[in-house]
Each structure stands twice: as C-alpha cells, then as structure tokens.
Simulated assay, not measured.
Amino acid sequence: MRRLLTTVATLLALAIGTAHADVGLLELPAQGEDGPIQVFYPTAQHAAPVQRGPFELQIAEGAAPRRGNGRLVVISHGSGGNAWVHSDFAKRLAEAGFVVALPLHRGDNFRDMSEVGPASWKRRPLEISRAIDAVAADARLAPLLSLDRVGMYGMSAGGHTALTLAGGRWSPARMRQHCEEHLADDFQSCVGLALELKDDGFDGLRKAVALRVIRWKLDDASSYGHTDPRIAAIVAEVPYAIDFDPASLAHPAVPLGLVRAGRDAWLPHAYHVDSVLRACQGCTLVADLPTAGHGSLMSPQPPGLSGTAAKLLRDPPGFDRALVPQAQGRAIAFMQQHLLP
C-alpha cells in the first residue's frame, strides 16, 4: 500500500509540474551576518521575464502571494552556489503549492568562497533554521503557512547540511582520516577545486601537498550537529558525507530521502551517498540516476564553467536532461507524502 501511495504521489507531482501555475519571487533582505533569502511561492499574478545575473526566469517578481498547500520547503545550495541554479526545482515546488526559501550561505556562495568546508558546514544548518524564522516573520508569507512541518532539500554541501539536520553528527577529523586513507580515489572531495590529479608525473607531489594541508586544517575531533523540530522531511542530493559518524545516521530524526548520481566525479557515490544508504535504516532512494554527474540536477545549469569546475559539474556525455524533471517530481512527491495531511 505504501509503495502504491508513493507511486500515485509521484504521478501527481509530475502532473502538477506540467500544469499552468504562476510563481512569484520575493527577496527577504540580509539580516545580521546572514545573506538574503530568495522565496518562490504560488501567486495569481502572471509571470514575466526577470534577469538574475546570467539567468532569465519566467516569474512574477514581487507579486502578492496566495495560499497554496500551507507548507514551506527550504533549499540549501552547494559550495559556490546560489538560488538560481535551483530555480527550476523551486518553481515546480511552488507550482505544487509549496512556499520555497533559498538562503545564500555566508562564506560559501558564488560571490564568496572564503570559508568553504567545515567553517561553513558548522553554520549552514543554523542558517536554515534562521531562514525558517525569517519566513515566519514576514507579514506577506506567514499567514499562508503552518510551520510545524517544514521540508528541507540540499545539494552537495547543501546535502551535508541536510544530513546534519536529519540528525547526523560529523567531525573534521573524520574527513582527515578518510582523506588519509582514500586520497587517490576521492581526491576532489578532499581538496575541492584547489588541485586536480593530471597523471602527468607530478601527482605524487600534488598528493603530498594536499595531505599536508589536510592534516594541518582538519585536526578538530569535535562532533558537530544541529536539528530543528520544525523540519519534518529531508532530501539530500549527492551529499558530502565522508565526515559523518555512520551510527548517527542509522535512525534519522525525520524521513530522509537521497539522490544518487552514478557518474559523480566530485563526490563519488561509493564514498558519499552510498555510505549513508549503508548506515541508514529506512532511508528512501528518491532518485537514482546512473548516467548523471555531480551537477546534473542543477537547473538551469550554470553558464561559463571552465577548468576543473566544468569537468566536475557539466553533464557527462550521454546524460539525458529529460531525467531532471522526473527526479524533481519524485522529490516533490516525497515532500507531499511526508508534509501534507
């Protein structure tokens, strides 16, 4: 019966995504050290072209919100990311009746990558909680929502945030241990975009430099975590996961869905999402895309990528982007199943 209900919900979400529905966009201003929050929501006003950097959105900017299904979903972007590469998904969630908030994570976004990694990971879950607070304090949005059952979705470093909010406990020292043991096989998740193995005779030196920096920076054995009682369902897409204590994810605090990309060159699934699936009892593999790369579900795709970032984020040859809305539909169905009456 549960499988049947899930299938019906998936079909409903896919149907909703193809129906005409207008979506509004508001920006909640930065507060204190937190960045601005982009909010997508149902509206009765018609969409028009809106430019955000290199992205053109069809959206009703500043339109009056109307009540949808009464639920909020918060999306956490990946390292160096922003709201706009998740805007197609946010619009589909809004078309399904959700209000969707996308905070800009301090020190780890497209404008500022000065604190990528553990420094940001400690803050990110708290920034998600404060994003919920900001929506709750907005006179236009709060009357339309019940915030006792909030959904949360995160991609990559945002997936790390998602696992934390699901009850996971992580430690920089765990990351160091993993990288000491698996540096060659999981090089990019250990060093990010700073270095790349090139099989040119200098990889030994690159590994030695990487290990020296890793051992210097990741000497903190403290365990970090943060949950929010308002969050009732979470999906982690290609999550960064090597630094989590598996036992802390054996029984997540809320229903936890996962998205796996079979050709992820940045966070190989064998070390990341698969480790969560092995540890977790009751997690749902919401979408499994064997031909997808790390950035394949970003939609629209970020333009102008070059160098290592392009190799890690562009679609692998042969990936069919028609799979993207299908995966989004399954994530929407997961939220509907766990957040709606």
Rank of each mutant, 00 (worst) to 15 (best):
E33M: 00
R123K: 14
Q45T: 11
E127V: 02
F98C: 03
K91I: 07
I128G: 05
L126R: 12
S114N: 09
Q58G: 05
P103K: 04
I37V: 15
S146K: 04
P103G: 09
R52M: 02
S114Q: 09
R140D: 14
G53S: 03
Y41W: 09
A94Q: 05
D148T: 12
R52W: 04
A131Y: 04
V100C: 08
W84F: 14
A60S: 12
A48L: 13
G53R: 04
S120G: 14
G32W: 05
P49V: 03
S146M: 00
L102W: 01
Q51H: 14
G32I: 08
S87W: 02
P103W: 08
A44C: 01
Y41T: 04
G107P: 11
D34G: 00
V116A: 10
V74G: 05
E115S: 14
L144P: 12
R111K: 12
P118Y: 07
P54Y: 02
A96T: 13
V50D: 06
R92K: 15
G107M: 01
T43P: 11
W84E: 10
A96R: 13
I37L: 11
L147W: 10
D88L: 05
L126Y: 07
F98V: 08
L104C: 01
A139G: 04
G32L: 07
W84V: 12
P54T: 05
L102C: 06
S129H: 06
E56V: 13
N82K: 04
R140K: 15
A96H: 13
W121D: 15
A137S: 14
N109A: 03
I37T: 15
M113N: 09
G35C: 07
R106G: 00
P125Y: 10
P103I: 04
S76C: 08
Q45A: 15
E61T: 08
E33L: 08
F40L: 13
D138A: 06
R123W: 03
H46M: 11
A63T: 07
P54F: 03
G68N: 06
D112I: 12
R106C: 00
H86D: 11
D88H: 13
S114G: 12
A131M: 02
G35I: 07
E127Y: 03
S114C: 04
P125V: 12
D88R: 08
L57G: 08
V85C: 01
A44S: 14
H77K: 10
R123L: 13
P103F: 06
A47Y: 06
W84K: 00
